[in-house]
């Protein structure tokens, strides 16, 4: 067990090393990305640019710069932004984490329940009008770009119908910590939760339906039916269990990357100051320290979530455990 965990940690280190090197190289290969002139400011004299270059160590060899940056990121944790000078990126990411976690955890709950609901009902009523309409809704959910949906949600709840009875409870955009005001936390996140979950309810419902239908044609299900088990029982006990593999895998991928900050646009459009927004700003500013920190943070969760998923496989399907 300990060996397995250790092995996974070593692999995680490799993944993070690979990503960080790639990010680093891509950054310095981009013309115009050289931070010296941007740090020095508009119309700075060449002497000033040169001194800034030296002060920040941009005149040193790339491997040295990489090593220094990694040391500052992981060991001393005092790496500061290239854009907001003096802003330490590690505490900034950690401070933003609760907002992202609140957003993603709530949305994940919604989309897991929604996905299960859509998938199971559609599979059970396969071919009926209910199945068809649920699938149409799911595909509409998948086709709507998140920035469009979020903008529309804002247009309706904040602007057009803000003063109507339906949406007067929606507070102004932004994130209120759970510890500060639980009610406000909840109210402020309802619309973002729904927006973020829409896409995933569609995808998960669609995939689950297909896998359920597939499984229901397996021999052992026929056996179960033949034994006279009720259809609901067959569906939920036997069918769902084996159909969940893809569902769980995708959940691992999505949850990991979203907690790691992949919900960029949802956070930006709803003014939620989370890791995704930090990543968005860092990419827009080409702020290497912040990009590196957020990407390292994201990769930690991606690898971690996948590790959990691999363990879950064994729980769902005992046959896999043998390996």
């Amino acid at each position: 067990m300990i060996a397995a965990v250790l092995q996974r940690l070593v692999q995680m280190a490799f993944v993070m090393f690979g990503i960080s090197v790639l990010v680093f190289l891509i950054f310095f290969a981009t013309p115009g990305a050289d931070p010296a002139a941007r740090l020095a400011g508009r119309n700075a004299s060449p002497e000033t640019v040169q001194q800034i270059r030296h002060e920040f160590g941009f005149d040193r060899p790339l491997p040295v710069q990489y090593a220094i940056m990694m040391k500052k990121l992981f060991i001393t944790q005092d790496l500061t932004s290239f854009v907001n000078r003096g802003e330490k990126v590690v505490p900034e990411i950690l401070a933003a984490a609760p907002a992202t976690l609140s957003l993603v955890a709530g949305a994940a709950l919604l989309w897991v329940l929604g996905g299960l609901f859509v998938g199971v009902i559609s599979a059970a009523t396969r071919g009926s009008w209910l199945d068809r309409s649920l699938m149409i809704l799911a595909l509409i959910g998948i086709s709507m770009p998140v920035f469009w949906l979020a903008s529309m949600a804002n247009l309706v709840t904040q602007s057009a119908y803000h003063d109507s009875w339906a949406f007067s409870w929606v507070p102004e955009l932004g994130y209120t910590p759970l510890t500060k005001n639980p009610l406000r936390w909840f109210q402020g996140l309802v619309i973002p939760w729904l927006t973020l979950a829409t896409l995933y309810v569609g995808i998960y419902g669609r995939v689950l339906r297909a896998n359920l239908i597939e499984t229901l044609q397996e021999d052992y299900i026929r056996t179960a039916r033949a034994k006279g088990l009720s259809e609901t029982r067959v569906l939920l006990r036997h069918g769902l269990r084996t159909s969940l593999a893809a569902f769980v895998t995708m959940f691992g991928l999505d949850f990991g990357s979203l907690v790691g900050g992949a919900a960029l646009l949802t956070e930006v459009l709803f003014g939620i100051n989370g890791v995704g927004r930090l990543t968005y700003i860092a990419l827009g500013n080409l702020d290497l320290p912040m990009i590196l920190a957020s990407v390292m943070y994201a990769s930690f969760f991606v690898v971690g979530a996948n590790a959990v998923v691999d363990i879950l496989y064994a729980v769902i399907d005992p046959r896999v455990r043998k390996e």
């Binding site: 400011g41 119309n43 004299s45 002497e47 000033t48 800034i52």
Partner: peptide
């Protein structure tokens, strides 16, 4: 502090 205008305003 190597201000941006050190070499253009105050030189």
């Amino acid at each position: 502090v190597k201000g941006p205008t050190a070499g253009t305003f105050y030189n």
